[in-house]
Design a protein around this nucleic acid. Structure first.
Length: 477
DNA sequence: TGGGGTTAT
DNA sequence: ATAACCC
């Protein structure tokens, strides 16, 4: 599979793929390991990726629930924050994550609804993902309101079905970034144009079937698709042609705006004098590796060029369920127990609905004065007899689970000393299908009841659960 | 900064 | 178990 002569807009990604095929380029592969030299690896042709981003998602869900809110400025409140708001409210100066007081001051007519219970948002979120999965199975969720879809195969199939004389009459759907003109003699352009048409169909389906509006970006990789989806903002879509890639990434005013470069990394980069995309592009990779580690350094410097070869990884069903609550102060064991019981009760309903069984439970706390993001957690396996009781809609599991959670609690918090917590969270994870057998060559000889009680030591996790028995030994402080 | 999520170490 | 990232 060679590069066609008409593919003038060769993408950086393709060059990377080609380079990685060269036998002696050890540095560039960097631990990707597992190379199978005997198997012919397909050199990936350029991909077509869509990023779909719902407009002010929580507010949209609220307006669908209660249409009277539709033409009013609406904010969704969690604790003392307006976490999101509709466009009416934005016109009047309300911003995301704005303090309720500031928001009311800016906009006294602002209508607020409480959005601390995420149930309806979560349900609508999965409806969107499922709708997109009808277009392609390769859908990756990012939070509740964004999805990536790999359209490469769909585009390929549509082009195979298309009489070649019809290519000349194709038209892009939505905006083209930079107003760049489409060249239908360029196969890369043609594929992205087909991608834009599919993106338009996805947005139409979202509106027609779910009543939701959103933006889409279509580009050769996830980074670029995500960046370009936000260019025209509510309810519009934009396609990025490769020739405008550098313009797009240089439109960022600061590296912190690059998805993948978060708060911590941005701070460390600033310490190196790196603040713009251009700074990061031209900075010594060796020095960057020393500061951030080889993996992060190589990845983010590639990002700075608009290169991102990360695949769209199908999310599938969630890997964990959690419920959390923040508060000003929790300083007694009884208080904590009451909150934990409520979190657990909600979680049990969700897990029951899911059908799979969690095999691990985790408790998370945040202590007051702990600067920020300072969370501590303890987890342990859920005893198999308790797992059996889950999902039947009964309460047989709650008492043993509360007991376990309170042991985890006392393992973290010395209740004989004063304490001050500002967050409690309970998480179910390590979800397995019903009666899932343990992986191993002997599986076919084990009954499901045996398999859940035998050699639980053979787990592939790096995280070691606290053994449930260990929790019975109270912690000495 | 809320109430969630994921992956890497 | 924590730390980073995403929304």
């Amino acid at each position: 599979m060679g590069v066609e002569p008409e593919e003038e807009g060769v993408l950086a990604e393709e060059e990377d793929a080609a380079r990685a095929m060269e036998p002696l380029d050890a540095g560039a592969v960097g631990g990707s390991g597992g190379c199978n030299p005997g198997v012919p690896t397909q050199i990936s042709s350029s991909r077509v990726i869509a990023h779909v981003d719902l407009d002010c998602f929580y507010a949209q869900v609220e307006m669908i629930s209660n249409p009277e809110l539709k033409d009013k400025p609406l904010g969704v409140q969690q604790k003392y924050l307006v976490v999101t708001c509709n466009y009416e409210a934005r016109k009047l100066g309300v911003k995301k994550l704005m303090n309720v007081r500031d928001a009311k001051e800016k906009c006294p007519q602002l209508v607020l609804v409480n959005g601390e219970d995420l149930s309806r948002y979560r349900e609508m979120s999965y409806k969107v993902t499922e709708l997109l999965e009808e277009f392609s199975p390769l859908v990756e969720r990012l939070g509740f309101d964004e999805n990536f879809v790999d359209l490469t195969d769909m585009v390929e199939k549509r082009l195979e079905q298309l009489p070649s004389d019809e290519i000349s009459s194709m038209a892009v759907s939505g905006h083209v970034y930079n107003n760049q003109s489409v060249n239908l003699h360029n196969i890369t352009h043609v594929r992205l144009v087909v991608g834009s048409q599919i993106a338009a169909e996805m947005r139409e389906a979202m509106y027609g079937q779910l009543g939701l509006t959103g933006c889409a970006g279509v580009a050769p990789n996830k980074l670029l698709a995500k960046l370009v989806s936000g260019v025209f903002k509510p309810n519009q879509q934009t396609v990025l042609l490769p020739e405008s890639c550098q313009d797009l990434i240089h439109s960022l005013n600061h590296i912190k705006e690059m998805p993948g470069i978060g708060y911590k990394t941005a701070k460390r980069l600033e310490g190196l004098g790196i603040s713009s995309v251009h700074d990061l592009q031209t900075f010594s990779l060796k020095v960057l590796e020393k500061e951030l580690g080889i993996s992060v350094a190589q990845r983010i410097q590639k990002l700075s060029f608009g290169e991102d070869n990360s695949p769209v990884t199908p999310s599938g069903p969630p890997q964990s369920f959690s419920e959390e609550d923040t508060f000003k102060k929790c300083s007694s064991e009884a208080e904590a127990k009451a909150k934990i019981e409520e979190l657990l009760s909600n979680l049990l309903n969700r897990v029951c609905h899911d059908g799979r069984k969690p095999h691990t439970i985790r408790l998370v706390i945040r202590r007051y004065s702990d600067k920020q993001c300072g969370r501590e957690s303890r987890q342990c396996p859920i005893p198999s007899h308790v797992i059996q009781k889950l999902g039947t809609g009964n309460y047989d599991a709650t008492t043993p689970l509360v007991d376990i959670l309170m042991k985890l609690f006392r393992n973290m918090v010395n209740v004989k000393m004063p304490f001050h917590l500002t967050l409690l969270s309970v998480c179910f994870c390590n979800l397995k299908a019903l009666n899932a057998a343990k992986k191993g060559p002997m599986d076919c000889y084990l009954t499901s009841s045996l398999s859940t009680t035998c050699h639980s030591g053979k787990r592939s996790f790096k995280v070691k659960d606290t053994h449930t028995e260990d929790l019975y030994k109270e912690k000495e402080a």
